[in-house]
């Protein structure tokens, strides 16, 4: 059997800080690589970012391909795509993983198109399995099963790339488990000299304004989320009060964000963040399939809604039918009297 290429992870960094999703993918990539008997390798691009390399070893990378160049900072899609395509052509990885972030989602398709490789967006699970293509009567061994929700979250599709490697996917943030780093792990550093021409550097960044997210929904064990049923921006104070009392973060449905009551950073669901806290309290959220896709795996779900037929109740462990203005203060009072 001819030796297959390795598992590659595109490492996303901002100011030398590695994105969580990239570390999640290194951990997942290692699982896949172990299953296939191949290596886990990282592709790290930017400028003055060598400090990231050790961290990547600790999370399980066997090799780090490092390209440092001032034209790779800040991120712009054309030079990044060029460097990755050149590397892919040279080393022929079997699997290439990207985070389904704003950067990953504009970079991966550019690379896939040039490489004529299949690309599956927003995967929520990856597995290795065989594939029988009944239409073309071909069978494939040890392929990457690319599992993703589609059709507004109403179906889950398993997709396979049947053309040449790499098998490319973007993976949603927060769905793969991040293992603890092991500081005894070592790896190999391979420095790349990017071959960039004028063609890839035609886009000029005139202005760049960025703030770190102020909300950490993914890292929070308790989330109190408000939906359209909260009724007004002013009423959202109730949601904040409950979150503060319980030591949690404030989440929101798309309807509440669209109504302008709360910032998009708080949005849970298909177009927001996927969360799985210990406790999720859905307040005045009807529970569209898009919202449920982002929170249904929470360990305990309490739904409060004045509509007894709200779909959110179908995923809730506890249902309370009633008005938020009545129930939330009772909940705060009950909690404060017990702790």
């Amino acid at each position: 059997m001819s030796k297959i290429g390795n598992v590659w992870v595109f490492i996303e960094q901002e100011g030398g800080k590695i994105a969580d999703v990239s570390l999640e993918l290194v951990c997942k990539g290692r699982d896949l690589a172990n299953r296939l008997g191949i290596k886990t390798e990282a592709v790290l691009l930017g400028n003055k970012i060598e400090g990231c390399v050790e961290t990547l070893y600790h999370y399980g990378c066997d090799t780090v391909y490092l390209a440092e160049d001032d034209r790779l900072e800040p991120f712009t899609v054309l030079p990044y795509a060029k460097v990755i395509i050149d590397l892919v052509k040279e080393h022929k990885p079997n699997i290439l993983l990207f985070g389904a972030t704003m950067k990953g989602r504009e970079l991966a398709p550019r690379v896939a198109s040039e490489k004529l490789a299949g690309l599956t967006a927003d995967c929520t699970d990856l597995q290795i399995d065989d594939f029988e293509d009944k239409v073309n009567q071909k069978s494939y061994k040890d392929k990457l099963m690319q599992i993703r929700p589609a059709f507004g979250g109403n179906i889950i599709a398993t997709i396979v790339n049947t053309w040449d490697d790499p098998q490319m996917v973007t993976v949603r943030e927060g769905v793969m488990k991040m293992d603890s780093p092991d500081s005894s792990r070592k790896g190999k550093l391979v420095r790349i000299k990017p071959a960039l021409s004028k063609e890839e550097t035609v886009i000029r960044v005139i202005e760049r304004i960025r703030e770190e997210k102020s909300v950490d929904l993914k890292g929070s064990q308790i989330i109190v989320a408000g939906g359209y049923g909260v009724g007004s921006k002013n009423n959202f104070k109730l949601i904040y009060q409950l979150a503060e009392a319980l030591g949690g973060e404030v989440g929101a449905s798309r309807a509440a964000v669209d109504a302008g009551w709360i910032d998009h950073d708080h949005q849970v669901g298909q177009t927001g963040v996927t969360v799985r806290p210990k406790l999720y309290i859905a307040c005045g959220i009807s529970g569209s399939i898009q919202h449920r896709a982002g929170m249904a795996e929470s360990k305990k779900i309490i739904a409060i809604n004045n509509d007894p037929d709200a779909p959110i109740f179908s995923v809730a462990h506890y249902s309370i039918t009633g008005e938020l203005n009545d129930i939330i203060p009772k909940m705060i009072k009950a909690y404060k009297s017990k702790v």
Binding site: I155, I156, H317, E323, I327
Partner: peptide
């Protein structure tokens, strides 16, 4: 098209055991 669909599963509302809590103190 390099990508092929291996299978499609419909998402069915999970029938979680739901405990109704009376909205009282």
């Amino acid at each position: 098209s390099p990508t092929k669909v291996k299978k499609i599963e419909n998402v069915v509302l999970t029938a979680t055991e739901t405990k109704a809590i009376p909205p009282t103190e």
